[in-house]
Structure formats: structure tokens, C-alpha cells
């Protein structure tokens, strides 16, 4: 598959603060790359560099084969960008605004009209196309921002926190829209919301303090489980030591007098054995829930790892 956007060794400093250090990034055709990190990790800085709004100190960025620094016009023609704050003009109506955006991206005449009509339909802006942007709800403004990014049919679309500040229904609609966009464009999506990545992205790149701490497919991220556990509720519980002595159990944690968390290695599943023993000894098993490390835990783990390494260095 062709690589549409490629960045190598991006570095950026703001005064003495290193915002981004040695970030490599690539997106293939038709792929959604999730760019994940806590607030202040350097996500927006990276997005700004990829979209040409900020010059990197070092490193190179190629969009559809064109170098963003030496051939900016050709590269930017293949790029759609929605910044954190959508760049809207409140005094224009939606269709006027999108027409101007198309013109800025070198669409003319019939191509312009049809591009604007298509994008209004795709983003579900039909009912508000004659209204002033300043009077629209945040959700519609965000959609207008997304429409602006895809009106000229770019190869790569960069969306910086597209769902921040929206209500749950709007978030769901925007996510559907993003998934639809990914059918035709490559998307880089920056966010700090983990379920969003789980739902939308093919590949994840996690950064923390300006450095990449993880970059692989979503499946690989799920495999990064450190351990698995079962939560059980017993009406007639035995001593903890008795639970501990069962095979394949690495630890038992007491949640309440009747609830226990049983931790085990992923490859040694003790469930079957545990059930048999519970029945035989009449522990009266009420509940057994398989707990998996959520993406959240993995994320926290990756970020914590990094922080502890930094502490050791200091």
C-alpha cells in the first residue's frame, strides 16, 4: 500500500522546552492513525507541523511524495487540516464558507460547485447550509470544520481532537463521519479519548512528553496485556490462603469479605479448575467476571513506564 504521509525525526523546541522529539510517523492509503497522548504531550504541536503551520527544527515531512518544506504548495494541496479550534468565519453561511475554502484550495467553476454540494451532503450539513456559522451549535460547527478539511478531496486528512467539547450524541455522529471519511482518505486523528481510538483506528501511536512510547496496530496494543484477572463473589468464602494455594493463581486480592480478584498469567487460565473446586467445597459462587486490561490500563502503564524511566534518569 502506498504511504501517503511520512514524517521522520520531527523535533521542535519552544525556548528551552522540548515539545516534540524524534517523532516518526507514517499513514498508508485508507488508514486511520490514532495519535494518542495525555494533554500537553505534544499532539497539537505535531499536528501543526504536519499541516505546515509550524516549522520543525529538524526532520522531514512528505505528503503524497512531496516534501512539505521544499514544495509546500504541492504538498498542501493534498492535505486537509482541522485544528483544535475550527478555523471558521462566523459571519459567513455554511455554503459560502465552504465555497471560499474550495477556492482557496484551487477549485474553480463547476468542480467547485459539485465539490461543495458533495461535502455538504457527506457531512450532513444540508439543513443548515444557508445559516450563519456563528449561529450554529458546536456540533454543526465541528462538522463544518471537517467539511472544510475534505472539500478539496485531499489524500490526507488531519483532525486535531475533533470530538472535544461535544455532547455524546454529537460525538457519535462525528465518529461515524470520520469512519466514512476514512473510506476515501487517509486520516490522522489526534485525541486523548481512548475508546475513540479503539472504535475508529487501525493503528495507534502513543506519545508522551514529546516522544513515541508505542506505535503499532490496535491488535498489538491489546496483546500488551500484563496480566489477566477474574473477579469472583462467593457467598460462603474460604480462607484467602486456600484460594492462593490453588494451581495457576499468581495472586489473590481481597476486594470485600466476599469478593476477590484472582490474578493469573494470561497463558495459564485457572477458571475451569476454580469452578470445579468451588462447587466441590460449596463456596456458593455467585458471580464470576473475566477482567481484561482495558486500553486505559495499557495506556496508563505505557505512560507510567515512561515517567518512571524519566525519574530514574533524573
Amino acid at each position: 500500500m502506498t504511504i501517503l504521509l511520512e514524517a521522520q525525526n520531527l523535533c521542535r523546541q519552544f525556548g528551552p522546552n522540548i515539545a516534540v522529539q524524534n517523532i516518526d510517523l507514517s499513514v498508508k492509503r485508507g488508514e486511520i492513525l490514532g495519535f494518542l497522548g495525555p494533554n500537553g504531550a505534544g499532539k497539537s504541536t505535531t499536528m501543526k507541523m504536519l499541516s505546515g503551520n509550524l516549522a520543525p527544527d529538524r526532520g522531514e515531512i512528505r505528503i503524497d511524495g512531496y516534501d512539505l518544506l521544499s514544495q509546500p504548495k504541492k504538498a498542501k494541496a493534498q492535505l486537509g487540516y482541522l485544528p483544535e479550534n475550527p478555523p471558521l468565519y462566523r459571519e459567513l453561511t455554511v455554503s459560502e464558507y465552504l465555497k471560499h475554502c474550495g477556492r482557496l484550495n484551487q477549485l474553480r467553476g463547476k468542480a467547485l460547485t459539485s465539490a461543495v454540494d458533495t461535502v455538504i451532503e457527506r457531512c450532513g450539513l444540508g439543513e443548515v447550509k444557508r445559516r450563519l456559522i456563528g449561529q450554529l451549535s458546536k456540533g454543526f460547527q465541528q462538522r463544518t470544520g471537517i467539511a472544510q478539511a475534505i472539500v478539496h478531496n485531499p489524500a490526507v486528512v488531519i483532525l486535531d481532537e475533533p470530538t472535544s467539547g461535544l455532547d455524546p450524541l454529537q460525538i457519535r455522529q462525528i465518529r461515524e463521519l470520520i469512519r466514512e471519511i476514512a473510506n476515501e482518505h487517509s486520516v490522522i486523528l489526534s485525541t486523548h479519548i481512548l475508546p475513540e481510538v479503539e472504535m475508529l483506528c487501525d493503528r495507534v501511536q502513543i506519545i508522551n512528553k514529546g516522544q513515541v512510547v508505542f506505535a503499532d496496530s490496535l491488535a498489538a496494543l491489546h496483546q500488551q496485556r500484563y496480566n489477566s484477572s477474574l473477579k469472583i463473589t462467593l457467598a460462603n468464602p474460604p480462607q484467602v490462603t486456600e484460594l492462593n494455594s490453588l494451581p495457576n493463581i499468581s495472586a489473590v486480592e481481597i476486594i470485600s469479605p466476599q469478593q476477590f480478584r484472582i490474578v493469573y498469567q494470561p497463558e495459564q487460565d485457572p477458571t475451569e479448575n476454580l469452578l470445579a473446586v468451588a462447587v466441590a467445597k460449596q463456596w456458593a459462587l455467585n458471580e464470576l467476571v473475566r477482567e481484561q486490561d482495558s486500553l486505559e490500563d495499557i495506556f496508563m502503564h505505557l505512560i507510567k513506564d515512561d515517567a518512571s524511566i524519566a525519574e530514574v534518569k533524573n
Binding site: S51, P72, K73, K76, G80, P87, C101, L104, Q148
Partner: peptide
């Protein structure tokens, strides 16, 4: 102030 400059900067314009 409107944060709308990126619209012009990311467009293929010098």
C-alpha cells in the same frame, strides 16, 4: 484571535 489563520496557511498558498 479567531484561530482561523490555519485555514489560509494549510491551503496551497504562499
Amino acid at each position: 484571535r479567531n484561530h482561523s489563520l490555519p485555514l489560509l496557511i494549510s491551503a496551497p498558498l504562499s
